[in-house]
Write a protein that binds this DNA or RNA. Structure first.
Lengths: 338, 338
DNA sequence: TTAAAAAGCTTAAAGGTTTAAGCAAATATC
DNA sequence: GATATTTGCTTAAACCTTTAAGCTTTTTAA
């Protein structure tokens, strides 16, 4: 109920200076030559008075808040909530605490989150950036605070990046479908300029090319983030009613696959007989789909841990010198029935 | 790259006192009689020098961090990540920012999170408490910081609580199964003392009693949080190999239902013909289960928003007087094929 | 014309912490 | 026994804000 006890309270209680108490609390009694019985007295009082350091004051003094700002598209999306969890754990191991924010794929919200976190003096950022936020990232970098991009990135923007090998694994996934004899392979992707997605689409195209298949524009289906549900439905209906008989689909994300499979289920299309499917990531949902789907497995654990490690490394190297690193985590193709 | 500009920088740049700058920045020029042309000068300089307030310093001075500590069992669990998202949004609307932490149903981790958040001077807490953390909650309350329990609660502990009507809705759910002619209804629940769960189990028992069915201990299956996967499997196998032919199961949570359904699928048990099922909450996964399941629908949006509202209300009423409120959000039973 | 009021600004302390610098007393050195 | 060193502590400033109190100068009121 009463005010928390401060260093000053302990100092007054013992009739000593706050400096002395601070030295002891921070285990610097050796360095600053505090007498052994004084150390004991202060330790005892600190425990008796239940002293807890005020990290806000500490932060103000040190200029370090031991805080990381994490911005993702949507924390309620399982992909990001899992990443968030792993980042939380890893960050706490390193003595950091995390502020979360969801940008909803919206550059303005993203900007607002950046400002809030900046004003709150976070030490660094981990960001899965939304579309058209290159300048925000650049502005953050220019504050001198380390920024690590996770999952997503901008090809033209030098930055610290932790991501998977999108194009390569997409190509591998589609090549798998081709090797199973599929000829009319569609891709369901986002209408976006974000490189992690366009790379996957490119991987799809490269696979077709490599195996001498013609890339048919009609087989590239794009859904916008905003109207994702209606878009996925419309695109798939168009696909199945088109003249080319589609015999495989590559979903570039988990969310697209879940939505897509619902439609496919409704239409009564048989998987994998009539339609082979490869998706990204695991989902509880896929376990109940009647056929075990093949999927691209990203090691989220590694992504999260690497992001924190890289950020902490940069924090320790401050002030920072515009030397950026990319960590590419290898994704794997898990082949099942489709 | 350079240090952020402070009030002092602006003051020195204009040759005025920091007080004056502070007044203008905080729109208190009327109250403190700052001359109109001075206001303009300061505004201009603030923009030119890109002044951003240091919220850490502000917090130290005001004793308020405009920060909420959220502790849940696991932020990667869709139930909690959805709640987290809603709390994030609502909190930001009210000018607060959220620290997240996952307790993993572990009292010690929960304690550690509380301390960290306390030291970081959060203004208040929203907690879905783990088992055996009554004393932690009490200790937090005794710091004078408002604590709102969400989803979970302790019957003997006076507290601010936002939760659903667990017992009633569970009773309704099981009554539904009975009304469909089911006689041997099992419940899959957690081995826990947490009231939100035991209430659901009690609701199950009350429903049986109300309709004159005998409560059979063998039909109450408990899984521990730690070994949840193996426990669910073992319990269900025991259930289906028992002498009583089970014709319905009530899953008290989403996670239990997902795990349970996998087993049921594997065993080839027909739902709803051989086995009727009612679960808690929606899940993408359920959409791919061949039969549309009936479920208890909690309005997470309301839970999250009410929790933040209640907390903010308490924050505005500080210092606080040990008058606690319970907000009971009505859950609904959504009846589908099972 | 003088006193009172208002306007426009500054000073300084406070919030809790860290830490360089300084000072006095005790101990070591020869 | 005088000097140098070590020991053990204090002082005070700094981090960035906010804000009560105070001080001039100008304006108003009589």
């Amino acid at each position: 109920m009463n005010r928390k006890t401060s260093l000053k309270d302990i100092a007054e209680h013992l009739g000593v200076s706050t400096a002395l108490v601070s030295y002891v609390i921070n285990h610097k009694e050796k360095q600053f030559r505090v007498g052994p019985e004084m150390v004991k007295k202060i330790r005892k009082a600190a425990i008796e008075m239940n002293y807890q350091p005020n990290l806000v004051a500490k932060s103000l003094k040190s200029g370090q808040t031991k805080t990381i700002g994490l911005i993702v598209a949507d924390i309620s999306n399982p992909f990001f909530s899992m990443i968030a969890r792993l980042i939380e754990d890893e960050a706490r191991k390193q003595g950091y605490v995390v502020f979360f924010g969801s940008s909803d794929e919206n550059a303005q919200k993203s900007q607002s989150l950046s400002s809030v976190f900046l004003n709150r003096q976070v030490d660094g950022f981990i960001i899965a950036p939304a579309e058209h936020t290159e300048d925000q990232i650049l502005a953050l970098q220019n504050t001198g605070k380390p920024v690590v991009l996770i999952d997503r990135y901008f090809p033209g923007l030098p930055a610290d990046i932790v991501r998977i090998n999108n194009a390569e694994i997409a190509q591998e996934a589609v090549s798998h479908l081709i090797s199973k004899g599929r000829k009319n392979i569609a891709v369901l992707t986002y209408k976006t300029t974000l490189a992690h997605i366009t790379d996957r689409t490119k991987g799809y195209q490269q696979a077709l090319k490599k195996h001498g298949l013609k890339a048919n524009k009609a087989l590239i289906c794009e859904a916008s983030y905003q109207d994702i549900e209606t878009d996925v439905e419309r695109q798939l209906l168009k696909l199945f009613n088109g003249k080319h008989k589609v015999d495989a689909i590559f979903f570039v994300t988990n969310s697209l696959a879940v939505l897509g499979l619902k439609i496919i289920n409704r239409l009564g299309i048989k998987v994998p007989d009539e339609l082979a499917i490869v998706s990204f990531d695991q989902s509880d949902a896929f376990d109940f789909f009647y056929a075990p789907l093949s999927y691209v497995s990203q090691c989220l654990h590694q992504l999260g841990a690497e992001a924190v490690s890289l950020l902490v490394k940069k924090l320790q190297q401050l002030p920072y010198e515009r030397i950026f690193e990319s960590v590419i985590v290898e994704a794997k193709l898990v082949i099942r029935d489709s």
